[in-house]
Design a protein around this nucleic acid. Sequence first.
DNA 1: TTCCATTACGGGGCACGTAATAATT
DNA 2: AATTATTACGTGCCCCGTAATGGAA
Lengths: 309, 309
Amino acid sequence: MKLQQLRYLREIAKQKLNLSKAANALHTSQPGVSRQIQLLEQELGVEIFTRHGKRLTSITQPGLAILETAQRMLQDADNLKKIGNEFNDKESGTFVIATTHTQARYVLPPVIKRFIERHPKIRLSLRQGSPIEISTWVSSGEADLAIATEAIELFDELVMLPCYEWNRCVVVPPRHPLLQLKELTLESIAQYTIITYDFAFTGRSKINQAFESRGLKPNVVLTALDADVIKTYVEIGLGVGILAKMAFDPARDKKLRAIDAAHLFEPSTTRIGICRNSYIRHYIYDFIEMFATHLDTETINRLLRNPEN
Amino acid sequence: MKLQQLRYLREIAKQKLNLSKAANALHTSQPGVSRQIQLLEQELGVEIFTRHGKRLTSITQPGLAILETAQRMLQDADNLKKIGNEFNDKESGTFVIATTHTQARYVLPPVIKRFIERHPKIRLSLRQGSPIEISTWVSSGEADLAIATEAIELFDELVMLPCYEWNRCVVVPPRHPLLQLKELTLESIAQYTIITYDFAFTGRSKINQAFESRGLKPNVVLTALDADVIKTYVEIGLGVGILAKMAFDPARDKKLRAIDAAHLFEPSTTRIGICRNSYIRHYIYDFIEMFATHLDTETINRLLRNPEN
DNA sequence: TTCCATTACGGGGCACGTAATAATT
DNA sequence: AATTATTACGTGCCCCGTAATGGAA
């Protein structure tokens, strides 16, 4: 059994059973891949794929089990390389953070500034996407870390590290009637059209819950992928915005006013997602601790071992 | 990077850094091993071993990390083969149970009888040893399962599945004074010389605890590795025996009398130890469920994922 | 007809074995 | 002197790439 064969296998699965595409993606020849898969099947004594004549049509039951194990082996092979780099040259390497707009725009900048000051030789990159995309990237090894608020509990191979809780605010144009109220209520908000995050994003479900629990049906006229869009539409008077408090900056957003809404919605927790089986280089530990000071190396390791404590 | 290289690495570590012995154990040549290790070190960019001239003297820090990952990869490689066999021929295979005397002699026989009736083509073997040895075998993959009562919590890579609790009894020759008592007490036992299990065996520590908590210093004249030896010496009048209740069979042990001692000593729990990352063939699930009916496949899988629930 | 997997075949790289060497104990 | 790791060197296997073939859509 060769690691190559497992790489071929993984790529075929990734390319939805198209062997030619897999060969292409791996910059090798079609026959080579075909042959190695056959050899692997022969060695293990089972068919990994079902074939209709000369097409791969599906993965067999043993094939699934094999694929799963193969993926872990390949990840470990990557880990070996990471270990090599780690001790080889501690201060260079790559670091891919997958995150959502809100984090990238409002939370991460100061952290990243400190990080690149401390680790100038690390090639850092940010990949922005939806929570689902983010999780996929991390679990496939394309990214090292996910930072998001929702929907990353779905992936088995990711371990979630709670970082901090945050609340929401309501943003309105200056002189908006809501600014006159002594205390902001859900009922008063519901009188206006609402602009907020898209579903499956930054704690959107918490907003829905709050309104539903009071029997209110808010009129959401626009859902956006990021806070900047929301603010823009609030500015032009399309409605009131509900967004994460950290996404409002009085110095910057002079054309808007924010009203604290912490008492109206459940707080959300932002988490770091990290692939359970991946080797963690020292600068990644360092980054995590910068981002959430309570997550020191020891704590992280404990959480990685016992996911649910 | 080649799996062979990792095998060489693992074997060198196993042979305490003696490269020649490793080459021998793997039925290959010394230079081949040496060379491949060098290539691996070169590829990963770190030294795995420290060398004094031409001797391997120790494993470096990165070497340790590499070794650990390599071992998991090799185990996964084994798992792939197991998966192959599993689907290839469901009813043949091998099954090595590592266990202690007490289990092998008094508990396992009926279970094993049923097992070989149901899976006649499986090559089953029992390996008897001390709890430490047993754990080592399972964690190194030499055995599939450990069945024991103590000391198997020490190995990180083993998951323990609690099977059943058991208590102790005191065995004495016929017409022994202890048989006249209305109720057996630790004080009355302590008046006699005692024969029981060796340290680190079948719940020996529970026995010590009980006496100590009453401020008693029992006079243990003989410690044995198994119940048969204990019984033999009790028969010849050397003292009273304390052993697992299941190790006394009135039909067989006609020259002895047993007195229940469940109220004197904390019960012990017998557990199955299984290597966290190994692929479990269906007949092994089957065996475990025969041994402890509450451990069905689903329960086992859950425990494997969340070790401590 | 096109796309795609498999079979056929040849070349080159590399893993392994034997032999020789060097360094420790 | 004995043990043990490394270097030198040749051979054979096997992986891979090109070309050709055979099924599916």
